[in-house]
Design a protein around this nucleic acid. Sequence first.
DNA 1: GGACGACATATCAATCTCCACATGTGGTTA
DNA 2: TAACCACATGTGGAGATTGATATGTCGTCC
Lengths: 191, 191
Amino acid sequence: MALLGLLKATGPASGYDLAKLFDSSINNAWKAGHSQIYPELARMTEDGLVTVEADGPRGRKTYTLTDAGWEALRHWLVGREPERHWRSEAALRAFLLPLLDAREAAAWLRREAEYYAERLRSLEELRHADGEEYPMKRAGFGRYALELGISQNRLLRDWALDSAADLERRAAEEENETATGEDAAERRAGD
Amino acid sequence: MALLGLLKATGPASGYDLAKLFDSSINNAWKAGHSQIYPELARMTEDGLVTVEADGPRGRKTYTLTDAGWEALRHWLVGREPERHWRSEAALRAFLLPLLDAREAAAWLRREAEYYAERLRSLEELRHADGEEYPMKRAGFGRYALELGISQNRLLRDWALDSAADLERRAAEEENETATGEDAAERRAGD
DNA sequence: GGACGACATATCAATCTCCACATGTGGTTA
DNA sequence: TAACCACATGTGGAGATTGATATGTCGTCC
């Protein structure tokens, strides 16, 4: 479906073009290497969703979206089957974080925050980039998706920083209590 | 890894227990049915990450985390290999949204917003629920992950509503322009 | 004219994942 | 005591995914 979408957005293209386009546009939402793209294009050709034409040099094949393909894409876009797999390593780690001690967890979160901050920067750059650098923008694309990505990364960064601060505060409090307890014990021992 | 984490968090458990726990806890971050869990437990037993003991009735097998298992889990939690698969159907749809006309896209977004709002409600309920209803809370778990989930769903809901409103505004503007153009044409025709 | 990098397509094996099918036991309740 | 539900564990096959490997061409720069 992602391939159909790109074909619709850009017009006829080769598998190679699509692979590059994938990288430079929806790679944040969906990943696919050329070893997935080529067989998929062959399958879609069989299904009549696209047509092929061998035209360019180096055995280049240009694929074009058919009416049936656009219909299928449209149907998928509008359809609302509940999302099948929402799966995120980051979320899993976040969930299991309390297994580590507070200091360690906080350190991990701070590194995570840096990572999100970096992604945030690169997305914000994209927002100010023009069509040359960001081909999908020419088609008015990714406008809303880009804003979403920016907001999400900002949220993630702030969440990581806040959680880290919270964990550190708790750790400090605990150490204080322990220290007080030890002081008391020492005082008792000294009696 | 998710399994190891749950084992660490809850202590010894059977595959059945883990499957249920999965559903009631990290299901939002990671999904796994029993048909994945049982083979995975067998594999981890071979690798020495857990030990099995057939004890309960009905062929129940209880799995216990070994030191090696905890070490592996710890290593995974602390380690920071860049996230491998971030893949989201919703994000993909969001990206391809401009392929639809504005009204249709807005309608889709409003339905999407409803969905996020519902998830938001259920997560907020979870926040106020006590350990009885939400077993992982007993272990102090999911505290930060839960807050993250709430923030994310709120963000998603607001993004969908804002984007829908924006699309509708643009569609209305366009229609106005078109109508004005037609008026002018009619006036010319009437001359 | 040779080297090199970008263009361009393809296949294979290993692994992961999903869904459906399959099988059986223990406790409770009508 | 029969029925039923929760408990409990598996297998098998289709399809997706990843990463490695393979092969060859075109244009350009030195």
